[in-house]
Nucleic acid binder design. Structure first.
Lengths: 98, 98
DNA sequence: ATAATATACAACCAAATGGTTGTATGTGAA
DNA sequence: TTCACATACAACCATTTGGTTGTATATTAT
């Protein structure tokens, strides 16, 4: 999941489709790469559970996956807290050091 | 930076060295890979600014980089907020949808 | 029915990634 | 000084990644 978010294009896609569902082809027009490349990015995001697709006529609408987004938020807060605490303790260590 | 954190070993290293400075060789004993591999991971983290090294005799002590960690926390909170808001708006869209 | 659009997917490619071993260098210990 | 340890780094390798083009299929429009 970290890996799926490690690509700038994919982060951008996730951010955009969280707003509103956007078709793959419409997404594709926003990037300087082929349709197929964008489609692959969407596939990566989908298999990481970050977005889902819903057929609408001949289009495939991509939307951010609410539950997985909540899961990420949770993960991030957790990381944040652990790190904050470690950082505090690290301050102590620095004082205590030598 | 997302990329540097996309590897599990590196996330683990970051988490550990935030506690206390640990030498590269001591870190290396914790993983099922060569010393050189661990050393490379540390180098990646270092060039992403997530950790810094400090010479102590013949050892090189790796510590989490407080300021960059704060930066990450900031970034993560920002992402979190943006996503939260989008998610809320998305809830609206879903109600409004169809 | 035919054409055009939107997508999926395979095959391919270059570059990046994550690992290895080997070698060189700096530092502490005997 | 000599040995051992800790590190740095180069060269190499396999796999993954991010991109391409080409082809097939589904759906809408004419």
């Amino acid at each position: 999941m970290f890996r799926a978010l490690a690509d700038a294009t994919r982060r951008d896609i996730v951010t955009r489709v969280m707003n509103e569902g956007i078709s793959v082809s419409r997404l594709a027009t926003s990037y300087e790469m082929s349709f197929a490349a964008v489609q692959k990015h969407v596939a990566v995001l989908q298999s990481a559970g970050l977005v889902s697709k819903e057929r609408n006529g001949r289009e495939q609408i991509v939307r951010g996956n609410l539950s997985s987004i909540h899961r990420i938020q949770h993960l991030l807060s957790h990381f944040e807290e652990v790190w904050k605490q470690r950082a505090l303790r690290m301050g102590d260590v620095l004082n205590d050091d030598d």
